[in-house]
Write a protein that binds this DNA or RNA. Structure first.
Lengths: 103, 103
DNA sequence: CAGTATCCTCGGAGATACTG
DNA sequence: CAGTATCTCCGAGGATACTG
């Protein structure tokens, strides 16, 4: 991002206002998930985008990534407190979309 | 959009999950605005993106566009009921960003 | 299994100039 | 004043193959 416009909404949308972020966060609301499981819940996402998006979310402190030193590799993703604080908003958006879809 | 994935959240984000849409909707929460006024409230937006975004919002039924047949031209934008139904979510996002900004 | 590395394409988005 | 028309560029994002 080049321009740092100081607007809360803008700021918020930079963190979650992308194609996949809200979906990933949403699916983690019910608890932590293994990488493969989580990815499977997001139909249409490419391997690359999944990794990339999840890394950004981690960098922004919205989720945490736990790596188990085993083989085959095992990685679990889990919402951080900060990510959890979005729960209401995410569920509202989901509800809004749901209500609005059924037209 | 090529893929029509049937997910409420995804659907919702397609409607408001872009760089400028939430900002435009947000600034209309306090009442209708003339085109120039509204645009001036969105620092950094280009002329083109403003028109384009506002048209998409109109197409999606989130706001209404009122054209006065006068010269010089006068156009006013106003939230539709559907757009108004996002008020809570928009304000929540704003609050979330605000709270989170002040770190 | 989880992630990385490339390559490539398409359209988001800015700049600028113009019209009614 | 509000909006359109081009031209252009850059990077988001997909497909594929590979590695530890």
């Amino acid at each position: 991002m080049k321009k740092e416009i100081h607007c809360p909404l803008h700021y918020a949308m930079n963190l979650i206002g992308t194609k996949w972020k809200p979906l990933i966060l949403f699916h983690l609301l019910d608890g932590e998930l293994r990488s493969g499981m989580l990815q499977k819940k997001i139909p249409g996402i490419s391997n690359k985008m999944f990794t990339q998006t999840v890394r950004e979310l981690e960098k922004d402190g919205l989720l945490s990534r736990k790596v188990y030193p085993v083989v085959p590799p095992k990685v679990e993703y889990k919402l951080s407190d900060r990510g959890r604080s979005l729960e209401t908003i995410l569920r509202s958006l989901d509800q809004w979309g749901l209500h609005d879809c059924e037209k």
